[in-house]
Amino acid sequence: MAVKKFMYVNRKAPYGTVYALESLEVVLIGAAFDQDVSLAFIGDGVYELTKGQDTKAIGQKNFSPVYSALGDYDVNKIYVEKESLEERGLTLDDLQHLVWEDEDEDYAEKDSIRLVSRAELADVMSEQEIILSF
């Protein structure tokens, strides 16, 4: 099967709408297809990766721990837009520390999150073949 460059663009806060959760479901299923996968988090989508989420008061499932499993699915190119973080008063320290293990380097643990500018992300997007936006 051909390998294509897939990018999942996450634009919405984790709760309030179902898009973040159902985006994650596509990513996990899609991982089985051995494609070249990237995730982008822009706008309110950056909130999806924040650490310390607590959903008890809204009666919904906290699905944020699933992001830390993405590395095990070989999903390790996670682009976070710098301007989107800044506009919301957030820094990388507010996000989960997502890592993956590089088989080619004796399973060395590496960071999955790549902090990029809006312009840099635009370049990455323009290289993609399939962009699914949530």
């Binding site: 099967m1 051909a2 897939f6 898009y19 596509v26 299923i29 494609q35 399939i130 699914l132």
Partner: peptide, 21 residues
């Protein structure tokens, strides 16, 4: 059917066009 059908559609088609959201 499953979400795999969406991924497959992306792989097999020249263009995947998304409506809504």
């Amino acid at each position: 059917s499953g979400l795999g059908q969406l991924i497959e559609a992306g792989i097999e088609s020249d263009r995947l066009v998304v409506f809504g959201a």
